[in-house]
Write a protein that binds this DNA or RNA. Structure first.
Ligand SMILES: NC(=O)c1ccc[n+]([C@@H]2O[C@H](COP(=O)([O-])OP(=O)(O)OC[C@H]3O[C@@H](n4cnc5c(N)ncnc54)[C@H](O)[C@@H]3O)[C@@H](O)[C@H]2O)c1
Ligand SMILES: NC(=O)c1ccc[n+]([C@@H]2O[C@H](COP(=O)([O-])OP(=O)(O)OC[C@H]3O[C@@H](n4cnc5c(N)ncnc54)[C@H](O)[C@@H]3O)[C@@H](O)[C@H]2O)c1
Lengths: 260, 260
DNA sequence: CCGACTTTGTGCATGCGTTCACAAGCGGTA
DNA sequence: TACCGCTTGTGAACGCATGCACAAAGTCGG
């Protein structure tokens, strides 16, 4: 529809004046810093898709193919990959193995990250039993609970320890990621303990907003929120349907309407 | 970020004639469309915080207090609330009850959303047993699995049905949200079945990119991705630390480099 | 009834992320 | 070697989200 008249004006070719800081700077680090959070999340997805392809013997892939398998726009994929370097071959595509290894490097997957799960209830059991983590460089090395009936019992091959031992054990086993699966009221206190044990990354399943120091990274998985977002879309869709069928005169009942 | 959808903003494309038509009613429907996805997610968080406050007898709250409890910027909170209307009192703050009911209305929580869980393994059991959903308007009304040993056994009070019954049962029980907790290879096929049973909202725990029609909303919970994002931050942090202590001469371990 | 004080709601600037569009670059081919 | 078609990598535009800063709008004490 629109025509953007590009002016071939100022040659932007080797426009290399903008590097700012240090002169001889290979720039991997600059890159790592500059990667948008959203892109990091997608890189993890690309990595999984690529691993699957590698397992099936695929050796090369184009941005178009990969983007489709990952469910994103091809241009976005290329831009995401460009954040980590230029590892493609024009006219051909990307070498799967090469891409895998570079994404792994950027995501810090060249070393293992030891995981501790706190709160071995319904969810904690599922997590501890889950086989998907160790295989991907995230071995679960410690489990904690307050319940004395659980302490000592192995879950998924790891014995449960009492929460009071959290500091000593986290330090000893070099836990780098703490997973909180306790009831909400206990979450903040567990979080504090993890932090004082030196854990700087936390994955929180409890529906609670955790307060942490700046140097600690928290990610939350909040199922209730996910459900409510879905609910919002249901409602919106119902509204639209209503406005179409009723004829867009305004409000339905209480703003709520029924399914198409 | 962590989002699956291709078209981000909630307000997708403007339909043809219906834009300017409504004269005296800018209200709810147009509003609901305009709410940014990110804001919707936060509204759900505010709702939980507010509910907690209401339970403790708090009747009024300022944007400052609420924003702190929700872990966001106060200005952002006010903007988020402004998307749903003007229900605050200047100089005073917000009435907790009023806010709760309006957020619930916008999120479509004035009606129940029936949930079906597919794949009653480790995770499916945890979900089925979880008491947090029914209380919040998301009753789990159906469970499905292929495993004949599971079929008929009640989990969390609901008997497991065979996956082949999925269409009939989802229709009958008016399931509006389907949760996929099967192994990855089964996820797409389960998804297709849910969709053909009329389910338009899906919460996916399997590490797979689902392909769905445009009218279906998918949200994914991908623990491996969450872990990898944390891993990325660990790596970045390690790099920074190294650059400080080593003194920025170039490369660190493994070709990774550190920041200036 | 007034004036001082508090807090909301929002216009605006800024920054980030997404998307488009295309030149540069590569492999294959004549 | 020179050309051709294909795919990458990226500059630039666009659009959404964030945060600031302040007028508007209310409360409260006198
Ligand atoms: N189960 C689910 O499917 C699900 C879904 C969404 C959210 N969640 C959230 O995940 C968390 C765990 O859920 P769950 O169903 O596993 O709960 P649960 O009650 O089954 O398990 C909680 C476990 O935490 C332990 N615990 C309590 N206080 C503790 C403390 N201070 N230190 C260490 N351990 C402690 C308990 O002994 C118990 O074993 C909750 O916050 C819940 O809201 C769970
Ligand atoms: N357990 C966890 O903590 C965890 C963590 C992250 C991701 N996940 C993901 O969640 C999913 C479930 O994990 P899990 O540990 O519960 O696995 P699981 O193997 O314990 O359970 C899977 C269940 O799905 C059933 N199933 C298989 N094919 C099916 C089909 N076509 N239709 C219906 N049911 C089918 C199986 O019978 C089994 O009961 C997996 O995709 C896994 O990658 C799980």
């Amino acid at each position: 529809m629109k025509h953007t008249r590009r002016s071939e004006s100022v040659a932007s070719q080797r426009g290399e004046g903008e590097t700012t800081t240090t002169p001889a700077e290979p720039a991997d680090r600059e890159r790592a810093r500059a990667i948008p959070e959203a892109a990091v999340a997608r890189l993890a997805v690309y990595l999984r898709v690529l691993s699957g392809m590698a397992d099936q013997g695929v050796t090369a892939v184009s941005s178009e193919e990969l983007s489709q398998a990952a469910g994103v726009n091809a241009a976005k994929l290329r831009k995401d990959l460009s954040y980590i370097g230029s590892y493609g071959t024009r006219g051909v595509g990307y070498d799967v193995e090469v891409l895998v290894s570079h994404i792994e490097r950027i995501l810090g997957l060249t070393r293992n990250h030891s995981v501790a799960v706190v709160g071995i209830g319904n969810l904690g059991h599922a997590l501890a039993n889950y086989g998907g983590f160790p295989g991907r460089g995230f071995p679960v090395t410690a489990l904690f609970d307050v319940d004395d009936d659980l302490v000592g019992i192995p879950v998924g091959g790891i014995p449960v320890n009492h929460i009071d031992e959290i500091t000593a054990i986290c330090v000893e086993r070099e836990v780098s990621i703490g997973v909180i699966a306790t009831p909400p009221p206990a979450a903040q206190s567990v979080c504090d303990r993890l932090v004082s044990a030196g854990v700087q990354c936390i994955l929180n399943f409890a529906p609670v907003v955790l307060q942490v120091p700046d140097n600690v990274e928290v990610r939350k998985v909040d199922l209730a929120v996910e459900m409510q977002i879905l609910s919002f879309h249901v409602a919106r869709r119902a509204d639209e349907a209503a406005s179409v069928s009723v004829g867009n005169n305004g409000l339905g009942v209480d703003g709520m309407v029924i399914r198409p």
